[in-house]
Design a protein around this nucleic acid. Structure first.
Lengths: 155, 155
DNA sequence: ATTCGTGCAAATATTTTGCAATTTT
DNA sequence: AAAATTGCAAAATATTTGCACGAAT
């Protein structure tokens, strides 16, 4: 994480932006996470940290910067909020999204990646990226009248 | 479309709901479409139709009903609005999206579908639907580096 | 000193909802 | 007449933005 923070500092410097305490505080919290999280969760982290927290606006603005410097990836899974995940030496993966508890399971499948290339080639299409999300119910949520587990914003 | 409208009428009757002119007007417009569309687009259709239009609230409420009676499918692709598509004897397909000319090529690939099931099973996950969009450049746009690349591309 | 950043509140944008008036059955 | 529906405006939700004040370079 030292490395990531340094990378963020460099990025700011290169862009002529300033290393403020708020930015670094947000970055620290964000770069500690390994899972998918929301902007709200970052604010909770800060609040829980007890320290002087950054404002909502600053959190959002800093998340944009972290994404621009490729320390963070974000996607909108259509849950009503944007979902962020670390992007530091993380290999490409796609997602299984549980419609009940909103859990997100990552997967990488070479067969799919290969088939994808084949399909694209057959249409003379050159791929630059893709989105592949599989929706359904995870093993914990398949039977009975499951309660939504709301496991999204916890660390 | 006659058939779909009749199905909608039956659905309303079975539920003890009323066949109002607004509902039928919205249903007519909606069921004419074949592509992906937004709630806003439905309202545009109505306005363009010149006829007395249904209110925004009624459009949204009717879309919910059409989905419940399985004449319509909807997904949130995370573009800022919910996307609807017909669900009347339409077979599943995915999309290649050209970042240059915005052309959309539909494809169906059984290998991918099968691999997808395999991946899901290996996580004890029960699939209900998926989104698979491949971004890149179509055969016509491969060398036009100058074309506008308006949108970001994530994988 | 200059340039940039922060925090607040207000603005967006899409979809939902409360409620009084109106329509369908 | 009873029950359901409409349309309006206001609410809900997540994110963005304008602006005056404050901080980093």
């Amino acid at each position: 994480m030292r490395e990531e923070l340094a990378a963020f500092r460099d990025f700011l410097r290169r862009r002529g932006l300033k290393c403020t305490s708020q930015r670094m505080r947000v970055a620290e919290r964000v770069l500690q996470r390994r899972d998918h999280f929301s902007a709200e969760a970052v604010m909770d982290d800060l609040r829980r940290g007890g320290e002087a927290h950054a404002s909502k606006a600053t959190v959002y603005r800093t998340l944009v910067l972290l994404e621009e410097c490729r320390l963070l990836d974000s996607q909108d899974f259509g849950d009503g909020f944007r979902s962020y995940e670390p992007a530091w030496g993380v290999q490409h993966h796609d997602h299984l999204v549980c419609l009940s508890c909103r859990r997100i399971i990552e997967f990488t499948d070479h067969d799919i990646e290969r088939s994808q290339e084949r399909v694209a080639n057959s249409h003379g299409f050159r791929v630059t990226s893709h989105i592949h999300r599989i929706f359904g119910y995870c093993s914990d949520c398949q039977d009975s009248t499951h309660e939504a587990r709301q496991r999204n914003s916890r660390s």
